[in-house]
Amino acid sequence: MSNMRSPLARVKGLGSAKEGLHHWWMQRITAIANIPLVAAAIWIVLLSLRTDYAGVINLVGHPCVGAILILFIANLFYHAALGLQVVIEDYVHGAAKFFLLIFVKFSAALIAMIGIVSVIVVIVERASGS
């Protein structure tokens, strides 16, 4: 068990594809990015409570606010998909795991897309209205 690698692989310096850390690392990167983004999103929602429908369009449709929300949605759903993947891999086994993993990835992409397109539509609406 001391060395599972062939002499040729060892001498050529072959090893893992160095991709094993990617999932773990992206989960942390998106977690760090989520700290300011969650704060910004909460502030935007609180601001929206102080105004009417036209005011909400004016707020969410502002390119800067909309850009923050789009960034937040992309980062949030990436983080959620990575986290759900770990939970599924820990508790679900067999064919169900396979389908759940794909289901989570597809739904995260779909729901994130609905959110992002919604923000873009509001930005366009505000720009054409004013």
């Binding site: 999103a41 909400v56 969410v60 949030l76 986290g83 939970v87 729901i111 959110g115």
Partner: peptide, 18 residues
């Protein structure tokens, strides 16, 4: 974490309603 993953629907519903 799992609850919030489902809860992301709240955020998207809010934006979709706007």
């Amino acid at each position: 974490g799992v609850a919030l993953s489902v809860g992301t629907l709240v955020l998207v519903y809010w934006l979709f309603a706007i």
